[in-house]
Design a binder for these strands. Structure first.
Length: 346
DNA sequence: AAACCGGGGTC
DNA sequence: GACCCAGGTTT
């Protein structure tokens, strides 16, 4: 049987019951696709539910303050997705009369929407016959057709898009695209796929040649750099603490955190005077400072390992702009800050 | 083309 | 520890 027919047949029998599969409303399709970029379905699902409840329409999302959007996004990672999501919602609501673009080419112009997402929305919401190329597609096609092009190369994307497009039925792009991704997610998995019970094991080149474990080929390795973060937890006379917004380029842009002193190496536990002396903006008398987390806390991101220490800074004065517990808990923060607050706040 | 951007699951 | 996830943007 033709590849796409077997694939769609498998999909119709095995697809998961997911909320964004009950609609073709481009707002919901767009929302789900942005959330699922580099994110597993299981991780994104609860966020999709909370977003659709908080923002039933693109106008609700557009009219929300960014801080509320980031707070709901908290924990999902890649926060530029949330900022672009908000910007695009405003654009659609205010400039496009609440109507999403209806073609791949026009969708591509939206912030946060690249080749994959434009193709996904165009095919799923409007039936446009454009192929998606995501991590699942690389894996399924590279194995089935025995393609060993390095998927981290630039030309791989064009090559696999051509290949996917050659297999895509023009009258059923929506199901084909979802089918190949679902097949990659559930059956043609990265490690130890169950090829013995696969519908394609008679035609799969990788299986026939014993190269399932070698495909797809990905040569580029991610380099991890260590960073040393010292967070200063101010406790003023009212029990309040300072928080600040990360406005610089880099991780966690526009999220909040405690006052931060980043050092090139780990600060010695006894060298507390150094922390206060070098910290800009502390204009109140410090009564006491101590290390709250002597155990090594290493927060691992894809490209950075953050060696994080939390220092408690007590003062007997009332610090201007310091926040109460409930106030700081309302702010969007990185997971590592959220975990600290949960564990250490009384 | 390469670097950057999170957090969690899996083996 | 290494790899991956319904990738996109910036440099």
């Amino acid at each position: 049987m033709v590849f796409y027919k077997s694939l769609i047949q498998w999909y119709l029998q095995n697809k998961r019951d997911l909320p964004w599969r009950k609609t073709d409303n481009p707002y919901f399709i767009w929302l789900s696709e942005i959330m699922l970029q580099q994110t597993r379905v299981a991780q994104g699902l609860p966020y999709f539910l909370s977003f659709t409840e908080a923002f039933p329409t693109v106008f609700d999302l557009a009219n929300a303050p960014e801080e509320k959007v980031l707070k709901l996004w908290q924990g999902l990672g890649y926060y530029s997705r949330a900022r672009n999501l908000h910007a695009t919602a405003k654009h659609v609501a205010y400039n496009l009369d609440g109507k999403f673009p209806t073609t791949y080419k026009e969708l591509l112009k939206l912030k946060g929407v690249g080749d994959y997402t434009a193709a996904a929305i165009a095919s799923i919401s409007y039936g446009e016959p454009v192929p998606v190329v995501d991590g699942n597609v690389y894996r399924v096609l590279s194995r089935y057709f025995g393609v060993d092009t390095d998927i981290s190369s630039t030309q791989a994307k064009a090559e696999f898009r051509e290949l996917a497009g050659s297999q895509l039925p023009k009258d059923n792009a929506a199901e084909f695209n979802q089918a190949i991704m679902e097949f990659g997610a559930l059956k043609c998995v990265p490690k130890s796929p169950d090829c013995a019970n696969c519908i394609f094991n008679a035609n799969c080149v990788a299986y026939a040649t014993g190269r399932v474990g070698e495909l797809p080929v990905k040569l580029k390795k991610t380099k991890v750099t260590p960073r040393y973060f010292n967070y200063l937890i101010v406790k003023d006379a009212d029990g309040n603490s300072l928080m600040q917004k990360r406005t610089a380029k880099g991780i966690w842009h526009n999220l909040y955190e405690f006052p931060l002193l980043e050092t090139l190496t780990e600060v010695p536990e006894k060298d507390t005077a150094h922390l206060i002396d070098t910290f800009p903006g502390f204009d109140f008398p410090v009564a006491d400072i101590k290390l709250l987390t002597p155990e090594k806390v290493i927060h691992k991101l894809s490209h950075q390992h953050l060696h994080i220490r939390f220092w408690e800074v007590k003062t007997n004065s009332v610090v201007k702009n310091a926040l109460s517990h409930s106030e700081l808990r309302a702010l969007p923060v990185p997971v590592v800050i959220h975990n600290f607050i949960d564990k250490h706040w009384v």
